[in-house]
């Protein structure tokens, strides 16, 4: 089964890896980050913070778009019956879902790696020497890692919703969960010693605030490895649970 998953994942990743359009988008994003350096005056000498914040926002948008690829990819392959070559093989259905998830997750890692490297080069090339100082580069990488984890969570959610809903509705649901997910920390705040239920609910919904370091970095709050570790563990467990559920549903679903 692992071999099947690897084949499907590799096929999915290769498909995007060979797309010229992907590189055009990534280059445009890096140029966009570079363009943010021109706003120092307009932001009243807050150019550095604006640039970091802007770079992380661009990474987040790319992560969101990447995660949505799985929805349309799976649906198109089922509609065009390309997927039938895989899912009519023994144990093919679970392998197909896990393979798609891992393939798109690797695509998210690839995109984030390119953008992070691009952003760090841009920081170095611009006159903001202090951006690279005080471990900011390391913390930027931490933030990018958690944004990648967020993409993986959203990919898992997208796969899950696509089991019941159409492509467009699924994409909208992912967008809604992306927006709400960054607000569910409010529920966490409502949680108290006596009633932890809000905290649990916020983690189940999902709580994407756990994966959001944008404000912390911009405000020069030191990010510990515990925060990173907790965020990554949360994302992996969350994604695995949803992909496992999707795989179980897909294995019992009629393929029209």
């Amino acid at each position: 089964m692992l071999g099947d998953i690897k084949t499907v994942a590799q096929g999915t990743f290769d498909r995007y890896f060979k797309m010229k359009e992907l590189y055009v988008i990534l280059i445009l994003c890096i140029l966009n980050i570079a363009a943010l350096s021109r706003y120092d005056v307009l932001t009243l000498n807050m150019g550095k913070e604006f640039m970091i914040d802007g770079a992380l926002a661009i990474l987040t948008v790319v992560a969101l778009i990447t995660s949505m690829a799985v929805i349309f990819e799976k649906s198109r392959e089922l509609r065009e019956k390309t997927a039938h070559f895989i899912i009519t093989k023994p144990y093919g259905r679970s392998s197909y879902i896990w393979g798609k998830f891992i393939g798109i997750s690797f695509l998210a890692i690839f995109n984030m790696a390119i953008l992070t490297a691009g952003a760090l080069i841009v920081f170095k090339l611009t006159s903001y020497e202090n951006v690279m100082a005080n471990n900011l580069a390391t913390e930027f990488i931490y933030a990018a890692l958690l944004i990648t984890a967020e993409a993986i969570v959203l990919t898992a959610l997208g796969l899950f919703f696509s089991m019941f809903l159409s492509d467009t509705i699924t994409a909208l649901m992912v967008l809604v969960f992306f927006i709400l997910g960054h607000s569910f920390y409010i529920l966490e705040k409502m949680s108290s010693e006596s009633s932890k239920i809000f905290g649990w609910v916020s983690d189940i919904l999902p709580n994407l605030h756990n994966l959001d370091l944008k404000s912390a970095i911009t405000d020069n709050i030191t990010i510990t490895q515990d925060v990173l570790g907790y965020g990554l563990l949360y994302a992996v467990l969350y994604a695995v649970a949803f992909v496992a559920a999707s795989s179980m549903i897909f294995s019992r679903k009629d393929i029209s």
Binding site: T7, K81, T82, P90
Partner: peptide, 30 residues
């Protein structure tokens, strides 16, 4: 399904793959 080969109606193939690469991909799956 180990004993069955299947051709669906009007299938689409991965257009960026060559015929040889596609059969290689199918071979990997099994």
């Amino acid at each position: 399904r180990n004993h069955v080969g299947f051709l669906p109606e009007n299938p689409k193939f991965y257009p960026y793959l060559t015929a040889s690469d596609f059969l290689d991909f199918c071979g990997k799956i099994i």
